[in-house]
Nucleic acid binder design. Sequence first.
DNA 1: CTGAGCTGTAACATTAATGTAACATTGTGG
DNA 2: CCACAATGTTACATTAATGTTACAGCTCAG
Lengths: 219, 219
Amino acid sequence: MDKMKILVVDDELDICAILKFNLEKAGFEVSTAQSAEDALGKGINSYDLLLLDVMMEGMSGFDLAKMLKQKPQTKDIPIIFITAKDTADDAVNGLDLGADDYISKPFSIKEVISRVKAVLRRARSDSASGGIEIDDEKKSVKVDGKPVSLSRTEYDLLKLLVHNPGKVFSRSDLISAIWPANVIVTERTVDVSITRLRKKIGEYGEKIVSRHGFGYCFE
Amino acid sequence: MDKMKILVVDDELDICAILKFNLEKAGFEVSTAQSAEDALGKGINSYDLLLLDVMMEGMSGFDLAKMLKQKPQTKDIPIIFITAKDTADDAVNGLDLGADDYISKPFSIKEVISRVKAVLRRARSDSASGGIEIDDEKKSVKVDGKPVSLSRTEYDLLKLLVHNPGKVFSRSDLISAIWPANVIVTERTVDVSITRLRKKIGEYGEKIVSRHGFGYCFE
DNA sequence: CTGAGCTGTAACATTAATGTAACATTGTGG
DNA sequence: CCACAATGTTACATTAATGTTACAGCTCAG
């Protein structure tokens, strides 16, 4: 496999240097930029992953991400936000913007590397052909290349599970993540939606696995 | 939980005093040393964390760290380096040496405390993994690298015990911590769950020890 | 208005987990 | 060493969790 290319965007030179050094040691190819504007000049669409500081002079990391998510060439590049603020708001904002993960300062290097790897693994499995393809723009799903028609609930379920392989979601996790806040549904409702989803995606239904006593996960 | 013991090593007495005062206020037990040699005389392996100045007379912080990382008794003690401001290279070197974090002068006390806590939190969950790894996101447990399948009750039990090594939980402690509030179970029920858990985690089952007349604890 | 698809609940089937009791073993205080 | 209490272990009946299907209410395009 080719070296994955990572672009680190942070206005603190120390942070850039540390990330660059350690990520390179972990086998990645790393460039750095000191501002969002600087990053734009570096041909972002040639990178496989962006590490993006939220708080920067000029254009913020959020602004940059928003811009990138609008262009077809760059919208699929995974983004990990780095934020100094430990506020849940930022995390929510970031994930809402389509960020793939979010790391708060101070971070440990080990943690960063493990998240980078996780995100890249995820991104690769997304584009992996022959499996499950989720086109978030068209809100359509293909299984082994063949389009399947999912309802809104099923689509959201599949997307959440597939984008977080291995992570176990309890029924109440799923309800609060997928069902509108103002509706009240039984936990068993989740089971039924899972059953319907499993049936529609054929053999891949078996990859949505139920962890007795915990919930569901995709593997 | 016991007080965490921290050793601050810095040749500037002012810095030592400030760190000692503030860390003690934050609930830690703090000793200080003015040099690496001094630190070696203080029984380093009894500490839970070292705060280590890089630039010191005689043996540098890096040298000390390198030495400690080579001895089995001390290699798992987390180290946070304190470096002068504009030497990102130092930080890089330090992280390369297996430091868990670095802090550059001048630092804010809040920052130091939050990093200390972060590192200790991380070290705690790591050290618990002396053969047992608990992945709370995946709700899965590995013993010596091999996944074992635990029921919900067994998982909760293991997690509670492992995260509080040495602490003795009475049966009623365990029941109120793990069993849903609305169910009523015999205290002997705990014994059975413990037995099942022990069997599943193999030789590590012996680390769940029963304290006759008191309850169970993990050591 | 109408019909097709979507949804949530309930009911029933199936499987995994659990609690209790009974008996075996170990530990403790005298 | 003995008696008694605490703990270990096992089997088995029961309970809880999950899978599945049917059905009724709902939405929404036409």
